[in-house]
Nucleic acid binder design. Structure first.
Lengths: 335, 335
DNA sequence: CTATATTATGAAAGTGCTTTCATGAAAGCA
DNA sequence: TGCTTTCATGAAAGCACTTTCATAATATAG
């Protein structure tokens, strides 16, 4: 293979000019840690001197892959998404894949992504976070061989990482009941956008189960939905003003639990003496405010998703996997 | 070379299925006049039958049709980074650019990114968040003509979005002084990784300036560095145990201010009566805990970076810009 | 009908890059 | 000081196509 007199130098030219082999040039560019610092420096200098620019198509050809992993995620307003994204990024980072983020802010958008991303074949893998995927979408993804991992949404024909929300609700309920509470209320999420999934419903179901098992009533006024942010609305306040005020509340998310905590304190209620609170998620700040909560391992779920994806990319023939992440009750000072 | 069982056939598959050679397939596709009408017809039919799409084309098309904006960021442990990233994503999302995230977790990595991203990854633009960029790096970026925007780090020859940390420190100091405090301490960051920048130093400088202007002393034991997380270390505790305890503390970040708040409460100090606290950043939870702080518009900085980038991509000839984001004192209940 | 010019086609040699494997050198260890 | 490990490097085998070059097939002319 001869270096060319072309206006576009190749790695062969770089190799010759630097007195190294093409392999070393390639490595210096793609996995610098495999090359000594001195050589790396030498390579970069030569590259600059002769004005070499690697050709993307040749690279893709040799690589047989685009080297890209897409992450479709409802846009990260929630603190919990962030931890997950961090897990994803941390896992992708040491590989040579790049992480392409596709934020979703409407249901058309997710539709659009699922339909077009596989077609262009510009991705090796796709991680879909907390979004519903229809059978049709799943079929398409499979047909076009885009390795896919779903986080927090189940689908039989795709790899999934699931959270057992029902179980989580059950745990929270049982825990509060074991603590002796009999009047326990539930706070769900009122304002999730249409494209989001609704894990809080299953959390409520689990909680209901715990209550009925214990023979405790769960009157309708004990179940209320509030917006998903720290500042809760009137209905949360109303809950605390009921003639028969609950002695404990299970909030479907930590953010709401924290809002509740604030309201309770404003009203002069002592936590946990007058009111016990259990959240869900275990976001970073839960520890700070001492919130008892059901921990779902956000970071780990993201990391796991990537690992699952990578393993499937290496061995496409292994079966789809459905991982279920263990939940964990973290007891702090609000109960 | 064997034809594959892939649902994405190669020309080898087409060749085999049609009983022709790969060369002919290639010609039929690229220079049809060199092939007889009959063969051409035959080729086209089999192509249709087995659903062949040339891979290289698909890749090249995919890479060209959408622009790519790279985001190099120290990996988002801090809540503040997240808001910025959100701003970036929100601004990219409506355009037809893709957002490619390159997390940095070591100084070699940032070096490598700055050196190779511009040439290897065919990026249209690059946003570098909170990372130092050397003159050498800057020169390289310019030479490779990758439009670049630096957030939180100044460089004369690149677009930048800066925060006036000095001014912020000054504001915090002046505010506390105006409140009548005379013994004011400062908490900086002890454990930033080597690859990170150090805005807290300039915040301290500004703060120092405010103190000296007011003729107030800032004894050495009033300046201490603690790890960048909520759980502060001993030196923060020691600060509150000093015989001449400060009546106010300016923390270089909200996270540390919150940690301090917790310690102060544990020690039975009333905030703000016994100890006033001012933070820096205005992270989401600052409002929740009622922290007085210097707000830097994280979200906006991210959004602005993208807008700046896009405008430069449209008109590459306009001058580099250096935007300075206004800081804002948000008064809440810790002062 | 031969001899010759024209095509249409396939074998095989590129294309510019990545990666595996083997090797020589340097480093660590007894 | 000799022996094992580790590390940096190069040779060479792909990758999915394109192109060159030689050849078989056909057409054209004499």
């Amino acid at each position: 293979m001869k270096p060319s007199r072309d206006p576009f130098p190749t790695i062969y030219d770089v190799a010759q000019a630097s007195g190294l082999s093409i392999a070393t040039i390639s490595r210096a560019l793609n996995s610098p840690e495999k090359v000594s610092a001195a050589t790396r420096e030498r390579v970069m200098r030569t590259i600059e001197e002769i004005g070499f620019v690697p050709k993307a198509d040749a690279r893709a050809r040799a690589l047989q892959s685009t080297g890209r992993i897409g992450v479709v995620t409802p846009f990260f307003t929630a603190p919990s998404f962030v931890a997950r994204l961090r897990g994803i990024a941390d896992a992708i980072s040491p590989t040579n894949y790049e992480m392409v983020v596709y934020p979703v802010d409407s249901s058309e958008r997710i539709q659009h992504y699922v339909q077009t991303l596989p077609l262009t074949r510009s991705l090796d893998g796709l991680i879909i976070v907390s979004m519903a995927v229809s059978d049709e979408d799943a079929r398409r993804l499979r047909e076009y061989q885009v390795e896919t991992v779903l986080i927090e949404f189940p689908h039989p024909s795709l790899n999934t990482i699931e959270i057992d929300d029902f179980e989580g609700g059950l745990m929270a309920g049982q825990y509060l009941i074991a603590k002796g509470h009999e009047r326990i209320a539930f706070i769900g999420v009122a304002d999730l956008p249409e494209y989001a999934i609704h894990p809080e419903n299953r959390r409520l179901l689990g909680f209901r189960k715990a209550m009925s098992r214990a023979g405790l009533p769960l009157p309708e006024e004990y179940v209320c939905n509030v917006p998903y942010r720290i500042e809760l609305n009137e209905s949360a306040r109303r809950l605390l003003d009921l003639p028969e005020r609950p002695t404990a509340i299970f909030a479907a998310t930590d953010l709401q639990a924290m809002g509740l905590l604030k309201i309770a304190r404003e009203k002069g209620l002592r936590v946990p003496e007058d009111l016990a609170i259990v959240g869900f998620d275990d976001i970073d700040f839960a520890d700070y405010v001492g919130l008892t909560t059901i921990r779902q391992h956000m970071y780990r779920s993201g990391k796991l998703a990537v690992e699952l994806l990578l393993s499937r990319l290496k061995q496409p023939d292994i079966d789809v996997q459905h991982l279920k992440l263990q939940l964990e009750l973290v007891e702090r000072s609000t109960t």
